[in-house]
Design a protein around this nucleic acid. Structure first.
Lengths: 348, 348
DNA sequence: GTTAGCACTCTCCCAAATTGAGTGCTAACA
DNA sequence: TGTTAGCACTCAATTTGGGAGAGTGCTAAC
């Protein structure tokens, strides 16, 4: 499993050249471009060995070699030189979230787009469950005769709202009363807490408004549990089409059909999710067959020190991993920082 | 400018055949498939005339003819037989918006997707200014020490929120007081009303909280004016890739670069916007050069009888206009109805 | 005014030939 | 024993050339 120095050099050359050119790379190219001090014949021998070991493959006889998933894996784990990423523009964008405070969703959406722009791959961002959400505030707003809006604010900073129909006799003042009771009884409670005992009390207190309460409870429940569901933000898809692998439409279709299905994407990303650091899944390591030619590089952003979501990118297996790692690392760090500040109240 | 009956028939045959097959259509095909009672030679003569008049074009000598933008235009205006669209599934989806009441944004997003699915073109939905929004409710929620959330509800049913930093000395009770004053003074007011005189009163009343008020006013302003901006919802992009014209990637790229830029798309759609009925802009009639091979079919959905937004689809000029019209008409009618019901309070 | 017939044009497709990049193997060399 | 030069071989990609087919425009006859 361990490779001698020269094999490492050859593999590195192959991976780097293929990343740069997207063309299968031959022994002569390596001998010429990467001065390894040996002839192409020697390199051919090494390549034969590497192929046997599974690190590289030949699309067909008489073509150059291409790294296999395993080859990329070895490259990422042992050969790649880590880089630092830093960019004035990125910094500007990120700072703008802080000076003009933004909604979290907005921040994450833009983060995804930023990654797409920077890398020409597709940025992906996923929020994970923020744990059980608890109710911070509920408000019933009288919109007009017969309709009311229920607004739910959770301690995670999410706002959920819906219009409900109400009896026409209900006045704004009635809604205010209900609002008061609900807040008094339910503030700080999680969905389980609510279910268990409190409801009866409230129904007792507001017996006349049973219908409205039913609706309101519904919205509360939705607001508190929706939170738990994963949410996905995609960067631009356009950018990744600049990659030469997308010369044929079928690939575009496959990718799009997957990216447009939020649920599937969420599942895939959840599989990759890990506590800390930057992870990569290469080609077939991603369990979904449609992604066999893609790699997913994901980092974890945090809140209160706890993982709060993934941020990363999806690109062809032939991607610039060093740069991808650097960008993802940069973004996770910064987004963690931004979120921490936007939601300072949670971290004391 | 007016065509005799036979020319009309020939043009109609060409348009219909091209729509169905995406292949240039020749004189023999027409003679064979569409029994016009004349030979292919006669049709050739007619076609020569039609070409001279600008209704059809030849990709190259010895290819069949293809309708020009002008040809499609004539077809749409004079030849096309209007159809009715009706679908069980669509009805189901639309009804689900009503039984389980949904947020408007959610309804519109899904409407776009529904169109994409039904037609294999790309559904587009745009909300236009709902006129000056007025403030329905404002709420300051204490999130924790030093931070508060401002929630703004407008009479259009939109909810806008943001986290703001507040002095650490401020308690939940203080925020409640501010909330009360703000609601008392500002409810029902539009952004202009607010600016003019009221602010001073409020600042006077709540002199100590100047800082918070500044932030809150900011959020209010944002909430009320954001409303005015157009918002775009796109259906699935995947579906349109099934159209044969997308065999080459460049087209996909051009389309995507445009679709991903909300602002540009909004401009284009605004140009097409019209008070009532279903409109179509064909190819070069759309001013944007990138859309020269596309047509946009748009309808207007309404609220309180007034136009509230556009809903329609974008597809290749070679699209099934009859069906597109029918679907768009169906969707505008239904979405108007759904929105009317969801926002019943506005229409009395 | 309509039609049959025909020469002409142009694309598309196929097969054969050519090119060129790259390999594997072998024999010689250090 | 590891390295290298050389060479035969393979295979995809490109080029070439020749139909085949679709379609047109024109003309002369009906």
């Amino acid at each position: 499993m361990t490779l001698d120095a020269r094999k490492k050099n050859v593999l590195m050359a192959i991976v780097q050249d293929y990343i740069a050119t997207a063309e299968p790379v031959g022994s002569r190219t390596i001998a010429r471009k990467y001065k390894l001090g040996v002839s192409s014949a020697t390199i051919r021998n090494e390549m034969a060995d590497l192929e046997e070991m599974g690190y590289i493959e030949q699309p067909h006889t008489s073509a150059g070699r291409v790294p296999s998933d395993q080859g990329y894996r070895y490259y990422v784990d042992h050969l790649m030189k880590r880089e630092e990423f830093d960019s004035k523009e990125a910094k500007l964008v990120l700072n703008s979230y802080l000076t003009k405070k933004q909604e979290i969703g907005h921040v994450l959406r833009n983060a995804g787009q930023l990654i797409s722009q920077i890398t020409n791959y597709t940025g992906v961002v996923m929020t994970t469950s923020l744990g059980r959400g608890s109710l911070k505030h509920i408000q019933l707003v009288h919109m007009g005769i017969g309709q009311s809006m229920v607004v739910v604010v959770t301690d995670a900073g999410a706002v959920h709202h819906r219009i409900i129909d109400i009896p026409e006799t209900i006045q704004a003042a009635d809604l205010e009363t209900i609002t008061k009771v609900l807040n008094h009884k339910l503030q700080g409670k999680t969905i389980e807490n609510i279910r268990l005992t409190l409801i009866k009390e409230i129904y007792f207190e507001l017996a006349k408004q049973k219908y409205i309460l039913d609706m309101a409870m519904d919205v509360i429940q939705e607001g508190l549990s929706l939170e738990t569901g994963e949410k996905i933000y995609l960067g631009s898809i356009f950018n990744i089409l600049n990659q030469p692998e997308f010369h044929n439409i079928e690939k575009v279709k496959v990718l799009l059909s997957l990216l447009e299905n939020e649920q599937e994407l969420a599942n895939i990303m959840s599989d990759v999710f890990q506590e800390s650091g930057v992870t990569v899944r290469i080609g077939e390591e991603l369990e979904d067959g449609r992604l066999k030619d893609y790699s997913l590089v994901l980092g974890t952003y945090r809140m209160e020190g706890k993982p709060a979501g993934s941020i990363g990118l999806l690109g062809p297996t032939r991607m610039d991993y060093a740069r991808a790692f650097a960008v993802v690392e940069y973004m996770t760090d910064n987004i963690s920082m931004v979120i921490e500040r936007l939601m300072r109240w949670r971290s004391k």
